[in-house]
Design a protein around this nucleic acid. Structure first.
Ligand SMILES: [Mn+2]
Ligand SMILES: [Mn+2]
Ligand SMILES: [Zn+2]
Ligand SMILES: [Zn+2]
Lengths: 159, 159
DNA sequence: ACCCTATCTGCATCTCATGCGAACACGCAA
DNA sequence: TTGCGTGTTCGCATGAGATGCAGATAGGGT
């Protein structure tokens, strides 16, 4: 998403108001690569603005998302994750700590896809699920691979 | 997942009991390519077995999933979808009617992925979001493409 | 400074899913 | 076939995450 200053202008130009709550969220989201949840943002916002409502956080996130400034992902593990990085990229999620990291996939457009006949596609997401480095070494019960960077385990890269 | 008969044997061999409720769900799920929700299965089951509990449906689905006979997907639009097809395949979801269809992706293992350093991957999902054929023609407001089978619209295939 | 209207906030409501315990019944054993 | 022990079923309570709603509040143009 754009910078807090640019967003403020954009909001005003759209007839939307630039409130302190919104400005705070602009700042908290800008360059935020943690893929925060609404609750996490609420917690962070509450530190700087005690009394801010969780409802307002949700509202603002929804607004930014429908404006295309923010992306929302549901990885099926818990609450939705928000991402100010609206560029083309994908994700990897740790099944243990639920951390999310960006993944860049090259050659995705060369895929040979069967089954999309009749569909008009507007979004394609690739999500890798696994264990992050920290969680791998910690709960390493079976003496599995501490550091393997390429897919493989059981399933190949993909398939 | 395996056939109702095979599942019955597998259950008994594991010390699990083969109840009429479970057998019914085995049948309802076998070769079911609709990616049903727990509620849909509950409705279907209720026709043949009035009084069956939604709780039992959830319980059985969870059991089958942890046994690897069933897969569970959360596409972020509503309730979880269950899939007896545990083979390697991916999905396309209609953002309007929420229908889910199977998609087979070739060459997925040739992808050049950056960002998985340190992760141990055990599952990779590709999900396409868009409009199915029926929904495309219906709410075709802007005169968009009635039938385009390859990604493209706005965003490239993937990226 | 004033007013109109968008926003904020607190609470109710909703959906989906899981925890829990008493009643029930599968399946083995006698 | 009958009886028993343990796994299941079922109904209800509870929980998480998110949205609906309306009165109080405050942008921001005039
Ligand atoms: Mn991201
Ligand atoms: Mn499928
Ligand atoms: Zn982790
Ligand atoms: Zn559709």
């Amino acid at each position: 998403m754009r910078s807090p200053a640019e967003l403020s202008s954009a909001f005003r130009e759209s007839g939307l108001k630039v409130t302190p709550q919104r400005q705070l969220l602009f700042r908290l989201l800008h360059d935020n690569a943690t893929h925060p949840t609404a609750d996490a943002l609420f917690a962070a916002a509450s530190e700087q603005m005690p009394g801010i409502s969780l409802r307002t956080v949700y509202q603002t996130l929804t607004d930014l998302t429908s404006m295309g400034e923010l992306q929302s992902f549901d990885f099926g593990n818990g609450p939705a994750r928000f991402d100010p990085n609206v560029g083309s990229h994908h994700h990897v999620v740790c099944r243990s700590c639920n951390d999310v990291a960006d993944v860049y996939v090259a050659g995705a457009s060369d895929l040979d896809v069967a089954g999309l006949e009749g569909f008009t596609i507007d979004r394609s997401d690739i999500v890798f699920h696994g264990l992050c480095a920290r969680c791998s070494t910690t709960q390493d019960v079976t003496g599995s691979h501490p550091n393997s960077n390429i897919p493989s385990p059981t399933t190949g890269a993909m398939s």
